[in-house]
C-alpha cells in the first residue's frame, strides 16, 4: 500500500511538472491522434467476432499453438467493453472460456470457465501486463491499454505515419519506461510499437504484418510481438473477422460461460 502511494505521489509530481511545459499547446492534436488510433485498433464496429490463431515460438525455436474464437462488444466507444474468448486448441484447454468486462479507471472483471470441473473461476486482474495464454502478447495488448494511462507526445510525422511516444503516468505499475507507436495516417491503425525498458533499451516490439479492409473497417489480420531479450515471438492471425453481428450483451455472462453460444461453436 505504501508503495502504491509513493508511486501515485511521483506520478502527480510528474504531471504537475509537465502541465506547465510547452506540450499544452500540442495536446489537442496528439490526443485526437491517440483517441482515433485507440478506436481503430480496439473499437471497430459495435461488436465483432474473429477466429484467432497464435503461434508462439520460444527462444529455442520451439513452437506452440493457440486457437480461439474471440467475441467483443462495445458498451461505449473508447470506454467499457466486453470480451469472450472460447478456446479450441490445444485440446487440453478446449472449451475453456475466458470472459472480461473491461472498465476504464478501475480493474477489469475477469472470469474463467473450466469445463472439466464445471467451475466458474473469478480471476484477480490487477496486473494487465502479464502474458495472455502463454504468448508474448499481454492482456493489455489484446484488450487495449487505457489512453489515459500514458502521456503522449508526437515525436515525428512522416509521409505515412504519426510517430507517438507514450510515457506511463504511473511508471511503477508497468515494466516499460516508454513506448513508441507508428500510427498509419490513413487508417489510424498502430502499425508498429517499440517498448523501452527501465534502462532505456528496446526489448519488445509489435508489428502489424497484414491489414485488410473488412466491412469498411481497416483491420489488422496478422501481427507479431517479439521479445528481443529471449528471442521468442508470437504471431497472431485473425480469420473470418466480422463486425456488427448483433451480439447480445447476455452472451458476456455466466450463462454462456457454462454453455458457449452458437456464434462461437460452428
Amino acid at each position: 500500500m505504501k508503495r502504491v502511494l509513493t508511486f501515485s505521489f511521483i506520478a502527480l509530481m510528474f504531471l504537475a511538472g509537465t502541465l506547465s511545459g510547452s506540450e499544452v499547446e500540442a495536446a489537442p492534436q496528439i490526443e485526437e491522434i491517440v483517441d482515433k488510433a485507440n478506436l481503430a485498433a480496439y473499437y471497430a464496429g459495435d461488436d465483432g467476432r474473429s477466429d484467432v490463431k497464435m503461434t508462439i515460438t520460444d527462444g529455442q525455436g520451439r513452437t506452440r499453438n493457440r486457437e480461439f474464437v474471440m467475441l467483443r462488444k462495445d458498451i461505449k466507444d473508447g470506454g467499457e467493453q466486453m470480451f469472450y474468448v472460447y478456446f479450441e486448441k490445444p485440446s487440453d484447454v478446449r472449451k475453456m472460456v475466458y470472459l472480461v468486462h473491461k472498465h476504464i479507471g478501475r480493474d477489469d472483471d475477469r472470469w474463467m470457465y473450466l469445463a472439466k470441473l464445471d467451475l466458474v473461476k473469478r480471476i484477480a486482474a490487477s496486473d494487465k501486463r502479464t502474458s495472455f495464454v502463454g504468448s508474448h502478447f499481454y492482456y493489455e495488448d489484446v484488450s487495449g491499454r487505457g489512453v489515459e494511462e500514458d502521456r503522449h507526445e508526437l515525436v515525428e510525422e512522416t509521409d505515412s505515419h504519426y510517430v507517438v511516444k507514450n510515457t506511463p503516468k504511473r511508471p511503477g505499475e508497468v515494466e516499460f519506461s516508454a513506448y513508441t507507436v507508428w500510427i498509419d495516417k490513413e487508417t489510424f491503425l498502430p502499425m508498429k510499437a517499440e517498448y523501452l525498458d527501465k534502462g532505456g533499451s528496446k526489448y519488445r516490439e509489435m508489428e502489424a504484418l497484414k491489414t485488410e479492409m473488412i466491412q469498411g473497417f481497416p483491420t489488422v489480420t496478422k501481427s507479431q510481438m517479439r521479445d528481443l531479450r529471449s528471442g521468442g515471438d508470437t504471431v497472431s492471425e485473425f480469420n473470418n473477422s466480422k463486425y456488427n453481428i448483433g451480439l447480445e450483451q447476455d452472451i458476456f455472462s455466466e450463462r454462456y460461460l457454462r454453455r458457449p453460444p452458437r456464434v462461437v461453436r460452428r
Binding site: D107, D109, R122, I123, A124, A125, S126
Partner: peptide
C-alpha cells in the same frame, strides 16, 4: 458473495 476488492478477489 464475490467481488473484486483490494486489487484482488474476495469472497
Amino acid at each position: 458473495a464475490r467481488n473484486s476488492i483490494w486489487g484482488g478477489i474476495g469472497n
